[in-house]
Amino acid sequence: MVPAVPPSDAGSPPPEDRDPAGFELTDEYDMPAEVDATFRTLRRAAFGYFALFVVVVAAVPGLTLALDWWSQGRLVGGMSPSFVMAAFGLYVFFFVLAVAAATLANAVEDRMLGGPERDHPEQRGDAP
């Protein structure tokens, strides 16, 4: 069992959240093991999303070299698939990716850190 780090060592509250005597105005803290597990989960997810992002962005100019249709075909009116992706498609992709990544990261942090029982120790029957 990894011991909980007292709030003063958790290092989380910024300096402006301390009272004039230097004590932190919070009872929130994180467990090192939980933070480490969360960090690893987030790192895996972030690099996964980044790999997808790089592949899609590189594919837009890259397909020009492999497929004539990509830059010479006509998809919307007079626009080639390459132009459509560069002018509209990539922006939609960026936004969808951002929403998905942020939603996942928020959910991971919400579930793995700061569980409700720690917000209210009395609910677990702990001594005050």
Partner: peptide
């Protein structure tokens, strides 16, 4: 370890939200 908790922990976020 202390720096890592500060960087990747969410205690300060929860504290701010609670306030």
């Amino acid at each position: 370890d202390r720096l890592w908790l500060k960087l990747h922990g969410t205690a300060a976020d929860r504290h701010t939200l609670r306030l």
